[in-house]
């Protein structure tokens, strides 16, 4: 057998995404400067950056590997609580961040184990149960997490000179995290790893017969996806300054899922657009948070019913013809 030589040239990997990536990077880094006059809008933009990172991680799992992990917010929470706990006991934030992200990744691998046996709805249900257990755990182990009250007044990370990282600098860190997240996703998707994940999404049994190590690749996907969740969660905690079990409950998982599905799963830019459109909503509607719930719920239904491919998918693919009805009797008769 002749081994297929893989081209590892990064410029080739980014082909087709170079221009949007450059635009995105420019916008991401320019926004904090443009909005620096208005702290509130700059804050909303920062939170949106975290959601772009989360949506990209969820996209890797849901869009490219075909698993719907509803415990995604729980993983972010594990990282956030780890980082907050470590910084409270004297660690530097920049040391705690990789530890927290790694904690999320390892938890992601362990909690993703059911995906090896369960598919589709059963895995999603299982992940929902796991998310509920994680949320209950955050409430129950109140010694570490302060229970339902949550942890407030989380200190900002410090910069080199001992000054706290605040305002513009923190916004730029978040922008950098979002841009790096998208670049990592592009590199993964364009590489052999990405193609194998897509093969697993399309048909994991067939992928296994073709010699793809399905178990290994699913675990890799969970590791990387959870890393996105973990980095986002670690950056989220000091930025907001407050975390509680509600910050990482199943509704948050559903919201991140919605950003991916609404934007267009399995595309690089769809989830980014989804996050940009949906993440600010919850802050702009803060006074009317119930309206946000209703709106998100309606959007979930609209995505499922009207546009399963999302916004980006609508441009790229033609809508599939719906399958003909299978076995409906021609004349309606009473049940016998």
């Amino acid at each position: 057998m002749t081994p297929v030589t893989e081209k590892k040239d990064l410029s080739l990997l980014a082909k087709g995404h170079g221009l949007p990536l450059a635009c995105f990077a420019v916008v991401a880094f320019a926004t904090p400067f443009l909005l620096s006059g208005n702290r509130y809008f700059a804050f909303v933009a920062g939170v949106t950056m975290i959601h772009i990172l989360w949506a990209s991680g969820m996209n890797l799992l849901y869009g490219y590997t075909g698993l719907m992990p509803l415990m995604f917010a729980g993983l972010a929470g594990i990282s956030a609580y780890t980082v907050v706990g470590l910084t409270a006991s004297g660690w530097s934030f920049w040391l705690a961040l990789p530890v927290g992200a790694l904690a999320a990744s390892i938890s992601g691998i362990i909690l993703g184990l059911p995906s090896l046996r369960l598919k589709g709805f059963y895995f999603t249900l299982c992940s929902l149960v796991i998310q509920t257990v994680v949320t209950l755990g955050f409430i129950y182990f109140s010694g570490l997490t302060n229970g339902d009250t949550g942890i407030s007044q989380i200190p900002l990370p410090s910069m080199g000179g001992g000054q706290p990282l605040s305002g513009l600098a923190y916004d730029l860190v978040l922008s950098a995290a979002a841009v790096i997240g998208v670049i990592v996703l592009i590199v993964i998707v364009k590489s052999t790893l990405g193609r194998r994940l897509i093969a697993i999404r399309e048909d994991d049994e067939l992928a296994g017969m073709l010699g793809i190590n399905v178990t290994g690749y699913k675990m890799i996907a969970f590791f990387i996806g959870s890393l996105f969740a973990g980095v986002g969660g670690a950056l989220y905690a000091p930025y907001i300054g407050f975390i509680s079990p509600r910050s990482f409950d199943v509704l948050i998982s559903m919201n991140i899922w919605l950003m991916v599905a609404f934007g267009g799963r399995g595309t690089i830019w769809g989830p980014v657009i989804g996050a940009i459109l949906l993440a600010p909503l919850s802050f702009l509607l803060q006074e009317y948070y119930t309206v946000k719930d209703i709106l998100y719920g309606l959007l979930i239904i609209a995505v499922i019913v009207l546009m399963p491919a999302g916004i980006a998918g609508g441009f790229l693919r033609k809508k599939k013809e719906s399958a003909p009805p299978l076995d409906v009797p021609a004349t309606p008769r009473g049940a016998k």
């Binding site: 209703i294 719920g297 959007l299 239904i301």
Partner: peptide
């Protein structure tokens, strides 16, 4: 789940 979120709101 969408219906759940609407009714919750």
């Amino acid at each position: 789940l969408g219906i759940t979120q609407i009714l919750t709101g």
